[in-house]
């Protein structure tokens, strides 16, 4: 099944710079419907009110972290509980990756990253586009 590039994508990061970088890279990949949130709580509100085809989130945010957001989504029992979720973070310890996987992450990108890495992980999660 082909990837619908018109899908809504939610990016979550407390650094405006990173939001802009990811948004621009997604735009270059053909994803133009990109929403932003600056922490997990704001992201969860958006997810409750709008269907997303992909969530790309940082880990280290306050008050709700990326891992808490992921657990909230997966444990919600709602229609969005299985939304594809990619963690993009500077947390590069093995225990972080393991914990994210246990929480149901679909892929994990360590910062700093490049456009090629972002594309390859999106392809791994959603399929070729």
């Amino acid at each position: 099944m082909a990837v619908d590039k018109n899908m809504n994508v939610l990016i979550v990061d407390d650094y405006n710079t990173m939001l802009r970088i990811i948004k621009n890279l997604l735009k270059q990949l053909g994803f133009n419907n990109v929403d932003e949130a600056t922490d997990g709580a704001m992201a969860l509100e958006k997810i409750k009110n709008k269907p997303y085809g992909l969530v790309i989130s940082d880990w280290n945010m306050e008050p709700m972290t990326g891992i808490q957001l992921l657990r909230s989504i997966r444990g919600s029992g709602e229609s969005y509980k299985d939304v594809p979720f990619i963690m993009i973070t500077a947390e590069s310890k093995t225990e972080n990756v393991v914990e994210a996987k246990k929480a149901g992450v679909n892929n994990y990108i360590v910062k700093p990253f490049n456009a090629e890495t972002l594309k390859s992980k999106i392809v791994a999660v959603l399929g070729e586009f």
Partner: peptide
């Protein structure tokens, strides 16, 4: 694109 990527230094 490379400049965008490099700008992630600010986050790190």
């Amino acid at each position: 694109t490379k400049i965008y990527e490099a700008c992630s230094f600010q986050d790190i």
